[in-house]
Simulated assay, not measured.
Amino acid sequence: MNIRYWWILITYVLMQLSAIPGTLLLMQMEVPFERIPGIWSIISFSLGLIIILFLLVPDMRNRHQVRGRSTRGEAVRWSIIGIFMVFAAQYAAALIEMYALGIEPGSENTEAIVEMAKAFPAFIFVVAIIGPILEEIVFRLIIFGALYKRFNFWIAGFVSSFIFAAIHFDFTHLLVYTAMGFVFAYLYVKTGRILVPILAHVALNLFVAVVNVLLADQLEDWVERLEEVQQTSLIIGGLL
């Protein structure tokens, strides 16, 4: 692994660790505590992305020399297919957790992110765009890529996906995150373009953000109305 990739990993780690001094700094500035995680994430993730993209400039210039690189048309097709693949993998892993392992659905990590987004809506941009870009660069392009040069797909995919799962600190649902990581790794190997798993990852996170944050109140209203309609139907049915 070349030195630039090591610097990318260091940048990513420092970005994550910066939450502690960043929180203390914003507290000194008397920023409302519930908004601090979202505000600092915008700052740290944006800065981290800029530094990492700068370090990747040589890779961008030489991207056309990559063997097995798919055409643009194939990349678009696999980006769309990949969205359905990652949703299917997540659903299948959740079913295994629920019925085989007895793990209840629902992610504490997702709930925490949703609360942060509600307190500071701009945080959605980190969740849906910046975060997926950074994670695919770090876990697929660099970690998986380095392992794939030495091992087969399954070993490289498992190790990189397990690290990807662990970094979310939602250890109850390691299987779900690992399954997602495998799909992203497959899309990267299949197309030779890191942009493809990035698009699939962005689509997944954007869907979760929209449903759980932007449409949360509307969905709750729809559920209540549906329950009222069902109750009314039962009453009418009983009278008839």
Score class of each variant (00 low, 15 high):
160 S>P: 09
62 N>A: 13
210 V>A: 15
149 K>G: 08
168 H>V: 08
148 Y>N: 10
228 E>R: 10
211 V>Y: 08
233 S>N: 08
99 Y>D: 04
180 M>W: 15
85 M>A: 11
129 I>G: 09
234 L>S: 11
50 I>V: 05
134 L>K: 10
76 V>P: 00
215 L>S: 07
94 A>I: 07
185 A>N: 15
92 A>G: 14
48 G>C: 11
48 G>P: 07
71 T>M: 03
199 L>D: 14
61 R>D: 03
170 D>I: 09
81 I>H: 02
59 D>M: 01
227 E>W: 04
191 T>H: 00
123 F>S: 13
194 I>E: 06
193 R>F: 07
227 E>V: 10
131 G>R: 02
66 V>Y: 10
88 A>E: 10
60 M>N: 08
78 W>H: 04
181 G>H: 08
201 H>V: 12
46 S>Y: 14
134 L>N: 06
209 A>L: 12
88 A>K: 06
197 P>G: 14
155 I>Q: 06
205 N>Y: 13
46 S>C: 10
201 H>I: 07
8 I>E: 03
182 F>E: 12
192 G>Q: 00
84 F>Q: 05
16 Q>L: 09
121 P>A: 03
146 A>S: 04
97 E>A: 09
7 W>D: 02
147 L>T: 12
200 A>S: 15
195 L>K: 06
20 I>W: 12
86 V>Y: 05
15 M>Y: 13
32 P>W: 02
224 E>R: 01
213 V>Y: 15
238 G>N: 03
235 I>P: 03
188 Y>G: 10
59 D>A: 05
76 V>I: 07
113 I>K: 05
3 I>H: 10
108 E>F: 01
122 A>Q: 07
165 A>H: 05
199 L>G: 11
192 G>S: 07
128 A>V: 07
63 R>E: 00
206 L>D: 07
58 P>C: 08
169 F>R: 15
76 V>Q: 00
59 D>F: 00
132 P>L: 06
173 H>P: 12
158 F>Y: 02
224 E>I: 14
89 A>P: 09
151 F>E: 00
227 E>I: 06
72 R>M: 01
8 I>L: 04
19 A>R: 12
181 G>P: 13
87 F>P: 03
102 G>M: 03
238 G>H: 13
110 T>Y: 04
5 Y>D: 10
38 G>D: 03
140 R>C: 02
184 F>N: 09
110 T>G: 03
147 L>P: 06
221 D>G: 00
36 I>V: 11
77 R>Q: 02
200 A>Y: 11
236 I>H: 14
38 G>Y: 11
59 D>L: 01
23 T>C: 08
163 I>V: 10
178 T>P: 01
172 T>I: 13
161 S>R: 01
59 D>W: 00
173 H>G: 04
56 L>V: 08
159 V>A: 04
100 A>F: 00
177 Y>A: 06
76 V>D: 01
168 H>F: 02
199 L>A: 13
239 L>I: 05
83 I>V: 07
65 Q>N: 14
134 L>T: 11
